[in-house]
Computed example of a mutant assay.
Amino acid sequence: MRDFNNLSPAAERIVDVAEDLIQRQGFNGFSYEDIAQAVGIRKPSVHHHFSTKADLATVVTQRYVQRFSLALEALDRAGAEPRERLMAYAQLFQATYEQNRRMCLCGMLGAESETLPDPVRQELQRFFEINLAWLTAVLGKARVPEAPEASQLALLLLSALEGSMIVGRTPQVDAAPLQVTRAFLALWAS
């Protein structure tokens, strides 16, 4: 399997297209033919770079998890108050959603997790563990009397953000992730 940090320009373009297709259609909703057409190459060329769809999806997911982890580290370095950090976190989802209502890659894959190859599921699990740990830490710093445990609130917010992207697609709610986070913060404070 390839390392996402050492991709050739052609392989990187394949990964970019695969990421877009997964975010819009899911793992089971695209083929190597779809990628070949989008990139402007022949299908055997896609196989040359990624012998299996599982290899490609693993690299796509590893890269996505790495980028998201780096974004969380940047939020930590900003040193803002918990509420500001949570809104900045929601903005990560909103920025993805604003790209033609694309889904969080791992949210989309999560819906298909039972049919995914093991390496992809492992990366998917890593994404959710990283996010829940980060949210739990942020929420734990701002104790609100009578509020549930930080880990429960973390699961609630992450689920609400992922769900807002799904639900917001159909009625076409423009700022669904931000709206959900604002509502969460209003309820959390009361």
Rank of each mutant, 00 (worst) to 15 (best):
Y89S: 06
G107L: 13
R182T: 10
P117E: 09
N100R: 13
F128C: 07
F93A: 14
L7A: 04
R121H: 03
R121M: 04
A142F: 09
L86I: 14
A147H: 07
Q152C: 11
A142P: 00
R143V: 14
D55A: 10
Q179I: 05
R67D: 12
S164W: 04
V15A: 05
F68W: 12
G110M: 08
Q152D: 15
Q94G: 04
H47A: 09
V46S: 00
A186L: 08
A176C: 06
T52L: 06
N28K: 10
W188C: 00
P117W: 10
D16Q: 09
F27D: 07
G26I: 05
L124Y: 03
P177V: 01
Q23P: 01
L187G: 14
E162C: 06
T136W: 05
A78M: 09
A88Q: 14
D118R: 05
Q122N: 10
I130G: 00
P9T: 00
D174C: 01
D16R: 06
L153F: 01
V138A: 08
V180N: 00
S164P: 00
E81M: 12
H48G: 01
H49P: 06
Y64K: 07
V46A: 01
F128W: 11
A186D: 13
L56I: 07
T170Y: 14
Q91A: 14
Y89F: 15
T181L: 05
A88T: 06
M108Q: 15
L56Q: 02
S159Y: 03
R182K: 12
R67K: 15
L75T: 11
R63G: 07
L109D: 09
L157I: 10
E84Q: 15
A189Q: 15
I166D: 08
A71M: 10
I22S: 06
F50I: 03
G40E: 11
K43T: 12
A175R: 09
Q125F: 09
K53E: 05
F4M: 08
L178S: 12
A88Y: 09
A95C: 01
S151G: 03
V173P: 01
A176T: 08
A142Q: 12
G110I: 13
F184W: 08
F27Q: 03
Q66V: 07
F68Q: 14
Q94Y: 10
E146M: 13
